[in-house]
């Protein structure tokens, strides 16, 4: 059995809630539970009662440009799922909360800080034998006013990354070791997410994102174990400006979450252009 969230030594333990907490707050009008998955069938097949779905492709991404939704779309999304600024949103999903933390990161671009992640995600909820329903909840639309999307605080763009590399700044590559070494380039059947070159951004440390979670129940590892990985083993400094990346910025949002909230790193940015941009850019430096 995993240690309780408050006993794990996190800098911001309040950003996580347990499955017990979620079970106790399912009827809480001030809490909106949100499921965000990679598998498009999971929510429809059964979800936590009262949970709404936020889909990473349709709801969080601009449907034309490669970018995230804008202020108006975010406001419409929050209205649709019945969220106000006072609503505590609780995200959970498949793949060790990979997509839940991605949604969490996008929500932070619009400053909805009243947000939490259910530790262990969907798999833990199911493993504990807790009920799921196919009933889609309906909430009264809200009037939600969002600020303009803030791309400066937690998001990095390619020019920034290049300057960061030239200055010798630290990066963390959260892809698989095979992607990091360039052995694996892309799936030929999926060229739109492929890259012309393989390898990694010079100086990047390789820490596959899933190392931050316990394999048996998907919960986050205690702070001491996380520090061992990111600080002792990889030498990353919590006070430095750090950029995390993967292939399109989803896995790295998980690492961004871990470093920012659980370990209290001061300045972590997610480079969502990631390898699908860097590996296709002309003339940028690459290491293998």
């Amino acid at each position: 059995m995993s240690v309780s969230i408050t006993e794990r030594g996190y800098v911001n333990p309040g950003v996580l809630v347990s499955t017990d907490w979620v079970a106790e707050h399912q009827q809480d009008a001030n809490v909106r539970i949100i499921e965000s998955n990679e598998d498009p069938l999971l929510y429809s097949a059964g979800h936590i009662a009262g949970a709404v779905q936020v889909d990473w492709t349709r709801d969080l991404n601009d449907q034309l440009r490669r970018d995230y939704l804008n202020k108006a779309s975010f406001e419409a999304l929050m209205s649709r799922i019945g969220v106000t600024h006072d609503t505590t949103i609780v995200l959970y999903g498949d793949k060790n909360n990979w997509w839940a933390t991605y949604a969490f990161w996008v929500f932070q671009l619009f400053g909805h800080t009243n947000a939490k992640v259910m530790d262990g995600g969907r798999a833990k909820w199911e493993k504990e034998g807790r009920p799921l329903t196919r009933e889609i909840p309906a909430y009264a639309p809200t009037a939600y006013t969002a600020p303009e999307r803030d791309d400066a605080s937690i998001r990095a763009f390619r020019d920034q990354v290049l300057k960061h590399v030239e200055a010798g700044g630290p990066l963390v590559d959260v892809r698989s070791p095979a992607e990091y070494t360039g052995e694996k380039l892309h799936m030929p059947e999926y060229p739109q997410e492929g890259a012309i070159r393989g390898g990694h951004i010079p100086g990047a440390k390789s820490v596959p994102w899933a190392r931050a979670v316990n394999t048996e129940d998907g919960t986050f590892k205690p702070a001491e174990e996380l520090k061992q990985i990111y600080e002792q083993e990889q030498g990353l400094d919590p006070n430095s400006e750090l950029i995390a990346y993967c292939r399109i910025g989803e896995r790295s949002s998980h690492t961004w979450f871990v470093l920012t909230y659980l370990l209290g790193f001061k300045n972590v940015k997610n480079y969502d252009g990631s390898w699908t941009e860097w590996g296709n850019l002309v003339g940028v430096p690459i290491e293998k």
Binding site: E38, D39, P40, D55, W56, T57, R58, M187, E189, Y190, E193, R247, I248, E250
Partner: peptide
């Protein structure tokens, strides 16, 4: 069959 919104990982697995 599944729509075009599949992630790369999911699409690659099914393929």
């Amino acid at each position: 069959l599944f729509g075009k919104d599949l992630s790369m990982g999911k699409g690659a697995g099914l393929m």
